[in-house]
Amino acid sequence: MFALQSTAPSLAPPVAMLVVFALLGAVVGAVGSAVARRLSNPVAKYRVLYAGVLLPFALLAYGVLALLGFGGAVAATALGGTDGVAATLLADFVGLLGAGLVGLAAYAPTVRGVRAVRDIDLSTGRALARMARYVVGLSAVVAVVIAPLRLTGTASPLGLAGVFVLVVAATLVGSPWIVAAVRSTATPTGATRERVDALRERAGLDVRDVRVLDTDDEETATVHVRGPPGYRRLFVTTTFLDRFDDDTAAALLAVEAGRIEAHVLPARAGSVVAAAVPLVASVAGRGPRWVLLGAAFVALGVGFGLCRRGVRAADDHAAARVGADAVADALERYADVHGMEPTRRRVPNPLSINVALGDRIDRLRER
Rank of each mutant, 00 (worst) to 15 (best):
residue 303 G to E: 02
residue 80 G to S: 12
residue 23 L to Y: 06
residue 204 G to L: 10
residue 242 D to V: 06
residue 154 T to N: 06
residue 195 R to V: 05
residue 148 P to H: 07
residue 15 V to K: 03
residue 273 V to C: 10
residue 55 L to C: 06
residue 10 S to C: 01
residue 214 D to F: 08
residue 235 F to I: 02
residue 315 D to Q: 09
residue 204 G to P: 13
residue 286 R to I: 03
residue 277 V to G: 00
residue 245 D to K: 00
residue 278 P to C: 09
residue 9 P to A: 04
residue 122 L to F: 08
residue 148 P to G: 07
residue 104 L to A: 11
residue 176 P to E: 07
residue 217 D to E: 14
residue 138 L to R: 02
residue 132 A to T: 15
residue 223 V to E: 06
residue 89 L to A: 12
residue 189 T to Q: 11
residue 217 D to S: 13
residue 43 V to I: 03
residue 91 A to S: 15
residue 248 T to F: 03
residue 172 L to K: 00
residue 4 L to T: 05
residue 13 P to R: 09
residue 285 G to Q: 00
residue 345 R to G: 00
residue 215 T to Y: 01
residue 103 G to Q: 11
residue 47 R to Y: 01
residue 180 A to N: 10
residue 158 L to Y: 09
residue 199 L to C: 07
residue 337 V to G: 03
residue 43 V to W: 01
residue 201 E to W: 01
residue 223 V to G: 14
residue 294 G to W: 02
residue 149 L to T: 13
residue 112 R to E: 08
residue 22 A to I: 09
residue 363 R to K: 04
residue 342 P to M: 10
residue 305 G to W: 12
residue 367 R to F: 08
residue 8 A to W: 01
residue 10 S to Y: 00
residue 19 V to S: 12
residue 248 T to H: 02
residue 73 A to T: 05
residue 156 S to E: 02
residue 190 G to D: 05
residue 173 V to W: 14
residue 255 V to Y: 04
residue 152 T to M: 12
residue 82 T to P: 10
residue 352 S to M: 14
residue 329 D to M: 07
residue 5 Q to Y: 10
residue 84 G to Y: 02
residue 42 P to K: 04
residue 271 S to L: 15
residue 89 L to N: 03
residue 183 R to G: 03
residue 189 T to L: 12
residue 285 G to V: 05
residue 352 S to W: 10
residue 346 R to V: 15
residue 290 W to Y: 03
residue 156 S to H: 01
residue 77 T to K: 11
residue 345 R to Y: 00
residue 256 E to Q: 11
residue 130 R to V: 06
residue 350 P to G: 15
residue 23 L to K: 07
residue 127 A to H: 04
residue 204 G to S: 10
residue 72 G to M: 05
residue 136 V to C: 09
residue 322 V to H: 07
residue 162 G to V: 12
residue 66 A to F: 05
residue 77 T to Q: 12
residue 270 G to A: 14
residue 156 S to Q: 00
residue 333 R to C: 11
residue 320 A to K: 08
residue 30 A to V: 01
residue 279 L to C: 04
residue 257 A to G: 13
residue 200 R to S: 10
residue 3 A to N: 04
residue 127 A to E: 07
residue 139 S to A: 15
residue 362 D to A: 15
residue 205 L to T: 05
residue 63 G to H: 10
residue 279 L to A: 13
residue 338 H to C: 12
residue 216 D to W: 11
residue 223 V to R: 12
residue 141 V to G: 02
residue 309 R to L: 14
residue 51 A to V: 11
